[in-house]
């Protein structure tokens, strides 16, 4: 059995790694937060508390799988797997390294955006079906936030697509061999970063689940493995957005030859994952309408301007 794009081994290895990484992120995040917040974080279970994840998993798998009697049972159960599945599917187009990936799709960027749109259903259905007022507020916020930020997320990527001349993520990486897109597309990167945080509803944009305001938002009524899927889904989202940033703006696996390409990819992605955690530690949460205004009144014009200028630049280049 060969290890190439699309092989069963490759698919299995990627699926396994991605889920393990997402689960381990729970520990990484708590330790990093501990480090930045003058405390320790989980350090009791196993060396450096590494087995905390195992303990958490045992707990979450053995917890009573409770469906509230007042909830709409079908969509209540349907909601959590959606987020897991769509994000895992998104990973299928990510080129981790030469020869490492699930599919080599010519519509990779579009596929990721489509999957991200589907992810909004998970949060909306979860909140609505819970039949809980806090969950309802959470899913209302989630619907507004995720739907709007998808717009800017998509537009912010178009600059990269235009420069690379392809929707294929692997080709986008290869076209960065002369220089990472972060330099010509810095504005696009910033917009993508902000939209990415909003899409994965992480603090400071965890408005759909803002603990201080609406308890736990859309997943207030969830427990056990259903909650676990939302939880791991969130970390999968972080890994996905970090991977996308690496692929689109930071040259993917490209790097000096003293390290293998996959290591470069992992290093770069880890940097952004840690950055996500740092954001959580550092920044307060804007109000939901402030986030909306910021998106529509600032990010949308900016991303359009970015696209126009990129297009003009390309035309000017071709004209020469």
């Amino acid at each position: 059995m060969s290890f190439e794009v699309g092989s069963a081994l490759s698919i299995g290895a990627i699926l396994f790694t991605v889920i393990i990484v997402a689960a381990m992120l729970i520990w990484v995040e708590r330790r990093l937060l501990g480090l930045w917040q003058e405390r320790l974080g989980p350090n009791r279970v196993g060396p450096f508390g590494l087995l905390q994840v195992v303990a958490d998993m045992i707990k979450i798998f053995t917890k009573e799988d409770w469906v509230p009697p007042f909830a709409d049972k079908f969509s209540f159960i349907l909601a959590p797997p959606i987020i897991m599945v769509v994000i895992l599917l998104s990973f299928s187009v990510i080129p981790f390294a030469p020869g490492v990936g699930v599919i080599d799709s010519d519509i990779g960027v579009l596929f990721v955006l489509a999957m991200a749109s589907l992810g909004a259903y998970s949060v909306m259905l979860g909140g609505l079906s819970s039949n809980n007022k806090y969950a309802l507020l959470g899913s209302l916020r989630a619907a507004a936030q995720m739907v709007s930020y998808e717009v800017f997320m998509g537009i912010s990527l178009l600059g990269v697509v235009a420069l690379a001349g392809s929707f294929n993520l692997r080709e986008i990486v290869l076209s960065q061999s002369d220089g990472w897109f972060i330099i010509p597309q810095f504005v696009g990167f910033v917009i993508f970063l902000i939209a990415g945080i909003a899409e994965s509803h992480r603090l400071p944009f965890d408005i759909p689940e803002a603990e201080q305001e609406i308890v736990a938002g859309y997943h207030t009524e969830y427990s056990g493995m259903k909650f676990g899927m939302f939880f791991v889904g969130e970390y999968l989202g972080v890994v996905l957005v970090s991977s996308l940033m690496v692929v689109l703006f930071f040259g993917g696996w490209l790097g000096p030859a003293f390290l293998p390409p996959i290591v470069w990819f992992v290093l770069k992605a880890s940097f952004f994952i840690a950055f996500f955690v740092l954001l959580r530690a550092a920044i307060p949460r804007p109000r939901y309408d402030q986030l909306m205004n910021y998106g529509w009144l600032f990010l949308l014009p900016l991303s359009l301007l970015n696209l126009v200028l990129t297009g003009a630049y390309i035309l000017w280049q071709e004209g020469l």
Partner: peptide, 16 residues
């Protein structure tokens, strides 16, 4: 106060 506005870290420093 900072925590209720969604800033998670200050409360830990201040508790120290």
């Amino acid at each position: 106060f900072a925590q209720d506005v969604g800033q998670l870290s200050p409360v830990f420093y201040m508790f120290v």
